[in-house]
Amino acid sequence: MTLLSIDNLSKSFGGLMAVNEVSFDVEAGSIVGLIGPNGAGKTTVFNLITGNYQPNTGTALFDGQNLVGLPTHTIVERGIARTFQTIRLFQNMSVLENVLAGGHCRMHAGALAAMLRTPTQRREEQESLRLAMAELEFVGLSNEWQNKAKNLSYGNQRLLEIARALASKPKLIVLDEPAGGMNDQETQDLIRLIRCIQDRGITVLLIEHDMGLVMRVCSSLVVLEHGAKIASGTPAEIQANPRVIEAYLGVDSE
């Protein structure tokens, strides 16, 4: 079953065609990698899916409904959570509070309920604390819950972003360079974590430059260059594709 279907998506910034008629599908339960050289438009595609940018043309169907035009928070509510290429945590807040942010869209208590501290509101708060701690446990950060986010190591900050995204109970998690700045050991752990996310029934779409990770973890790949899709297929097919090799390594000019 197709969970996310990108169709003819285009986005230009002034004269620059950042994304040019890109189409691809993400099957439910799969791990899909979006790869390509720097500046190929990968992050722009992510920003179009998550509502940070609005496309010029094209549609993004999620669970059969068009995402184009929806604000970011509604898209999160529909079930797409993301992490950022440049880490965007709430730096001065605690690790726990960062994860609670993800749970926000699954809660309902408003300002009045908070002032009156109704039983429903208290139950909801307790439940969201429990869920947040469970997600921290899942990514292996439960010991750090009281620390400020900015005091975590770079690798752990990436994990915290994933925990925050998971706390919104997504159907699809969109990871923008999750292994960026991680050492080998951390990358190994990340691969295991991504598989665990898949085991929970969450579909994963990721951008990554670490080809070792991409080839090991992804079931299918989409390759972008200069904003356009140049190939898609299984990791083995992509590795053998001359067009992709040319995009990455250039071609001999004899």
């Binding site: 998550t50 940070n52 604000p71 970011t72 928070h73 999160v76 509510e77 959570a81 993301r82 950022f84 965007r88 945590l89 709430f90 730096q91 001065n92 807040m93 509070e97 942010a101 993800g102 926000h104 869209c105 925050r164 995204a165 919104s168």
Partner: peptide, 16 residues
């Protein structure tokens, strides 16, 4: 407080 810290991240975490 999330909005004060980082509006984009707050929106990306599902906050209106």
């Amino acid at each position: 407080m999330y909005i004060k810290e980082d509006e984009v991240a707050a929106g990306g975490s599902g906050i209106n």
